[in-house]
Design a protein around this nucleic acid. Structure first.
Lengths: 142, 142
DNA sequence: TATTGTTATACTCTATAACTATA
DNA sequence: TATAGTTATAGAGTATAACAATA
């Protein structure tokens, strides 16, 4: 076959885009935007400072204020004082926030089931190749 | 190894996200947002109606008006009358628009070079697997 | 002085609803 | 009646610049 690099990148972009659409649809079912779901998911995995959220979102720190404001006004996260540095605010998920993310994860299983189209060997191969590719793609804008 | 589906999806999402960041950075060098670069790229491939652009962007048709307005005010696209149906407006790239997209494509080559980390067989394998996966992922929100 | 988070501002993208002009 | 595109509106995400509190 001999796939051109541009062709292959197009397919990577298409798969990435399709995944994002699916994720956005699942998040919307909980009344969350994709960015809100991403932040809430991160906070559920581990409480973390505003600054760290900005890095996770690859956006300016000033934006995080509004995003967390909206989550907090819905009672999905709390801002807690940093234990050592009093400038830092730690974003922590509430029980309600945790429940919302659990629902998102549950719904994402139907998206994950798209992988059933691949056999186990294909999944392992895909995983290995993508992990090899990821650092190269990530460092370009880093 | 035996990769879990969730693990594999995380890597797919990470690669998709990294690609998007790279694309956004390249588009920004031409003063374009990612959405603008996508619309302009589509118009350069072939002139097409507003309605078709809305489908390509997976957004409401009303949004396309503003996006095309901004491209048109910069002289990158033109709205032309539809040949048969007078309701339709065909978005066509200008020479300047074409030049901007050529610059984007040129810059994207450095992103494509991330694929040099893979040998030819890996690229063919990756392409084949992703193409098998794409329809499954796409139909969920379709 | 440097860093964390916030505010103020402006722009883009987004959906919804109501409108027009065509078909 | 239905469709293509627009307008009006409101909300969310984004960057920049200036600021307060803390380090």
């Amino acid at each position: 076959m001999s796939t051109s690099k541009a062709e292959l990148m197009d397919v990577i972009a298409a798969v990435g885009g399709a995944y994002y659409q699916d994720f956005a649809a699942v998040a919307a079912r909980q009344g969350l935007t994709p960015v809100q779901a991403k932040v809430l998911g991160a906070a559920v995995r581990a409480p973390l400072p505003m600054r760290a959220l900005a890095e996770a979102l690859v956006c300016d720190a000033s934006n995080v204020t509004g995003i967390v404001d909206r989550l907090e006004s819905r009672g999905l996260v709390r801002r807690e004082a940093g234990p050592q540095d009093r400038r830092v605010k730690i974003v922590t998920a509430t029980d309600e926030g945790r429940a919302a993310i659990l629902a998102v994860r549950e719904d994402m299983k139907s998206v994950h089931d798209a992988l059933d189209r691949l056999d186990e060997q294909e999944r392992d191969t895909l995983h290995a190749i993508l992990q090899k590719l990821l650092p190269e793609l990530s460092q370009l804008t880093a």
